[in-house]
Amino acid sequence: MQLTLQTTREDHRIAWLAALAITIHIAESALPSPIPGIKPGLANIVTIIVLMQFGWTTAVWVALLRVVVGSLLVGTFLTPTFMLSLGGAVASLAVLGIASRLPGRGVGPVGYCVLAAMTHIAAQFWIAYWLFIPHDALFHLLPVLMTAAVIAGLVTGVIARAVLDRLSDTDYGRHPAAAAAD
């Protein structure tokens, strides 16, 4: 029996963007890291761009697909790495959701990226503390991790802004409903 799935333009877009995020995710996990757990979070750039171009719901899909499929491909699915990754993604999506509903001119790419990076690290830190390394010495690392998060947030924010500028020049993929979406 053949099963036909009705896919929409929206589904295709999510799939393409998730594929992009997954590629970055895998490339990043292959990079050596000076301190375990500290990564620049380049895949976050995709999440933020999607958030600003297509709205929060699409960003949630892209980010969660990135975490799940990415971990399946790298081979970390359901391992501690995956739980850290998922926890960080869920927490930062929640904060992004709230921030994207801010009144006024709203938050720009740099603000989103800084928020996302910090929430990511904070959530991962707590998961690591409660599930894996319940040692008080871990708190010694927290200021360093948060500093790294702010720097990473600023860097990815600047990159995201540059990408968004290019996108608006070409007016690529701008969804007419994006403005109406929250």
Binding site: G104, G111, V114
Partner: peptide, 28 residues
């Protein structure tokens, strides 16, 4: 950069010394 961006970046940077004081302070 919107005003919200500035608020987020400034408060994020301002949070850091506070964290260092909390977790590194007087713990040589």
């Amino acid at each position: 950069m919107t005003r919200a961006d500035w608020v987020i970046v400034i408060s994020a940077v301002a949070l850091l010394p506070f964290l260092y004081a909390l977790y590194w302070g007087n713990a040589a």
